[in-house]
Design a protein around this nucleic acid. Structure first.
Lengths: 252, 252
DNA sequence: GCGAATAAGATCAAATACGATCATATTTTG
DNA sequence: CAAAATATGATCGTATTTGATCTTATTCGC
């Protein structure tokens, strides 16, 4: 059996068996474990499966948790620190917009017992806040996006375009002094831009670990935010770069 | 079993069993308690569950402090039985409407791995289903109601009035052969009526423990449903009463 | 409140899996 | 057929995962 056929069969095998370990595949296809690993790497690059330690699982397995890769790397303490700093900027009895994400979720937890109106696209955040008797929560409708656990479609966009807020908080997986904030797809880009437009002031919540990375779709340069809230993990050099592009950096 | 698969299975185990302690999980998955704790930490960061002392509970338990947790614990076996029966009525590749509530949440869990489009007002359900790669989830927008953890306002109503479904499932806290289904407030009444109107067929999910009670606002008589799914806790006398008003009773 | 029992976390050690490099075998191509 | 290109396998150092032991928290009963 040649490589191409073997890999096709391997992908199917993994799909049908909900995953398999390297040794099982090596036995089944009569090749050495190293060859299985090489096949796995090739298939992973084609999104035919997701590699795991010791084996592989169907790609769809991790799709539900695409957030996995991101959230596993998530630096929870620094997110909490950023959220605490952000919470200080929120005035009681005001309208707050929250972007989707884990940092904004931390912020939402801190706002639970405040008197506020909160508009968010993140269902996780909405559900948390719905427990509060002092917070009114609004979400746009539409199809729920698996990755962000919230709505990103055009209906959500129109909903947000009718809203007005005193302050909005944008989260990001990628940011950079030169490239600004960018997102991995157009709907997310549009949602973030709308959240920025519809609030009197806008803050970026940006984990230092994510600095220097970027995605295909530009959202805004850093100077368009009233403040960029990050944690202590930024080098002085990076701080200077951020200052040089005219952004207001707030360290938590 | 590798880590990724084990953690996925663990999250599911916790969900299905409404929680488990560390030792139980260690025995079940044949790993040491320390590994279970490490897995739990990872899953907690993904919001797949909530850690407790000695074990873990589903993430959904996070959201209800008292009221919801109590409801969740109330009569779980019969809710699960009703949900199982209801799931059999759902055809693959169809559109399903789910009312808010714990019984419909149990139903949603059973539908997670099916190919479906689901429309629901319950954010808890929406969030659960958003983890699935085979289900498309839609929610109406608007203000989130604290009691039902979902949207009940006029915008939600208008949204649902534009929707079409093959089947809808209505939950209820009160039902009776004579008084039919009733709800505690007008918005809930209107939402339930709309869910009934917009689907080709409609089923009531009704816990036997709640039989014989009623609320101020009538939703519909039992005979308006294509079926009333309940559990084995109904006396023959009650079954006869239900039969006499022309309703189709299905016992799980 | 206080103390015992249990759970959680930290650190270290062992087992296993991984990837890089090089050698060998197979296929392709002129 | 020869040479090149590709695929496969072996070895070794590195990385990841897991479990054991010990210390620190947390819960529960009095």
């Amino acid at each position: 059996m040649n490589g191409v056929k073997r890999r096709a069969a391997m992908a199917r095998f993994i799909d049908e068996n909900d995953g398999a370990d390297v040794q099982t595949l090596a036995d089944y296809f009569q090749v050495s474990p190293i060859t299985v690993r090489r096949d796995r790497k090739i298939l992973a690059e084609q999104n035919m499966l997701s590699p795991t330690h010791g084996g592989a699982v169907p790609a769809s397995f991790l799709y539900g948790e695409l957030a996995y890769a991101q959230k596993v790397n998530a630096n929870i303490p620094s997110k909490k620190a950023i959220a605490r700093r952000a919470a200080e900027l929120v005035r009681d009895d005001s309208v707050v917009m929250l972007d989707a994400g884990t940092t904004t979720l931390e912020l939402a937890k801190l706002l639970m017992h405040r008197r506020l109106t909160i508009i968010t696209v993140d269902l996780q955040i909405a559900l948390h806040l719905s427990q509060s008797s002092t917070v009114r929560v609004f979400t746009p409708g539409g199809e729920v996006n698996r990755e962000v656990q919230g709505q990103l479609d055009s209906r959500a966009l129109r909903y947000l375009q009718e809203a007005n807020a005193a302050i909005s908080f944008i989260g990001t997986a990628t940011w950079d002094a030169v490239k600004g904030v960018s997102s991995s797809n157009v709907p997310k880009q549009e949602i973030k831009r709308t959240l920025m437009e519809r609030a009197e002031c806008t803050y970026l919540l940006a984990d230092s670990a994510k600095y220097g990375t970027y995605n295909p779709w530009s959202v805004a340069p850093l100077k368009n935010f009233d403040g960029v809230i990050s944690d202590g993990g930024l080098s002085p050099l990076i701080c200077k770069d951020i200052f040089d592009v005219g952004a207001e950096l707030i360290l938590a």
